[in-house]
């Protein structure tokens, strides 16, 4: 699982690449926590275009980031969700909570 981050003017963009399962999610959460603590972003954009597999561990990653952005009174969007990951999000009803673009 690879996590690459870019930030400018308190806008943090995170691109995820690889398999987002329980094994990979721990690393993503640690990296996101670290970058959000440092940047205190007003806006977080997560690009999932490079995710080749995802299970419910990905739901926990997004919900954690969403809670954190709410604490910072910021907004969060998730883009380029692959079809397999989208089925997992839809089964969990996550589209009611997360802003997918």
């Amino acid at each position: 699982m690879a996590v690459s981050c870019m930030s400018a003017r308190r806008e943090l963009t995170v691109a995820l690449t690889g398999e987002l399962d329980h094994h990979g999610a721990k690393q993503v959460m640690q990296e996101l926590d670290k970058r959000m603590d440092w940047e205190l972003p007003r806006r977080l954009s997560i690009d999932m275009g490079g995710v080749t597999f995802m299970d419910s561990s990905g739901i926990a990653v997004l919900l954690r980031a969403h809670r954190r952005m709410a604490q910072l009174q910021g907004s969060m969007t998730v883009s380029n969700v692959p079809p397999q990951a989208l089925r997992v999000f839809q089964a969990a009803g996550l589209h009611r909570v997360i802003d997918f673009v």
């Binding site: 419910s56 561990s57 969990a92």
Partner: peptide, 22 residues
Amino acid sequence: QPMYTTGGEERAGMGFTIMESF
């Protein structure tokens, strides 16, 4: 049950819901 977990913030509690759906 959906959202039930003993795994803390690292888990979403959606594992059985996903298994049942798929």
